[in-house]
């Protein structure tokens, strides 16, 4: 499964969830597949998806749809603290999806640690409920399973290296992203039922 194929599935599944998305190719591919006011793109803050998603989950009503973080293996391994922090703070409304292609996909496909380090085991050791998959159907099933978990959830998705061709860069004003996301949280998220 390519990254953009995983993102097509996630875009379909995340329509009512607050979504925090890692920078560069992942953000721009998700925006190309389907942009939405519920998407909060971190345009340059590599490694911060888990932190921001954890803070959001703590700040939002836990009875509303879970906060979904979409992270890459390179970015997570730049700030693996997010795993013990999420496990310690333990918001029940947090689902972190790791798209793991084994490389820093936006920076020359240089290798990450993930070929030798079991990041799912790291998450489990830190207290997250985990699932893993490498197919689109498996992604749908595992995502649905983890919506029913009442502790931080971690979905490890193995994908192929490589970026989708001809996808435009995201050249958005971060303040405009904040405005539309915060408005969506106020006006739509608060009105939604949990994980519906």
């Amino acid at each position: 499964m390519r990254r953009i194929e995983a993102l097509e599935v996630l875009a379909e599944l995340c329509g009512r969830h607050p979504v925090v998305v890692t920078c560069a190719a992942t953000s721009r591919e998700l925006a190309a597949v389907r942009d939405g006011d519920n998407h909060f793109y971190l345009l340059d803050a590599m490694g911060l998806v888990g932190s921001v998603a954890t803070g959001l989950a703590l700040g939002l009503d836990p009875d509303r749809p879970k906060v979904v973080g979409i992270e890459g293996d390179g970015s997570l391994l730049m700030n693996p603290n997010v795993l013990p922090t999420g496990g310690y703070l333990a918001p029940a409304n947090l689902l972190l999806v790791l798209l793991d292609n084994g490389v820093y996909g936006s920076t020359g496909a240089l290798p990450t640690y993930s070929s030798r380090v079991d990041v799912e085991a790291l998450a489990a050791a830190a207290g997250w409920t985990t699932r893993s998959t490498d197919t689109a159907d498996g992604l749908r099933t595992a995502f649905a399973d983890l919506l029913d978990v009442d502790e931080p959830a971690f979905l490890h998705v193995r994908i192929e290296p490589g970026n989708a061709p001809d996808v435009a860069k995201l050249l958005l004003d971060p303040v405009s992203l904040r405005d539309r996301f915060a408005r969506w949280l106020r006006e739509d998220h608060l009105a939604a039922g949990r994980n519906s």
């Binding site: 998603a53 954890t54 803070g55 959001l56 603290n81 922090t85 915060a182 949280l185």
Partner: peptide, 24 residues
């Protein structure tokens, strides 16, 4: 009040509260 393990973690976790209209 909660401990955190590293300063950039704190910026991410507490900074996110502003998106919900609260101050971290």
């Amino acid at each position: 009040v909660t401990p955190l393990s590293r300063e950039e973690e704190a910026i991410g976790v507490l900074g996110a509260f502003a998106l919900t209209g609260a101050l971290g």
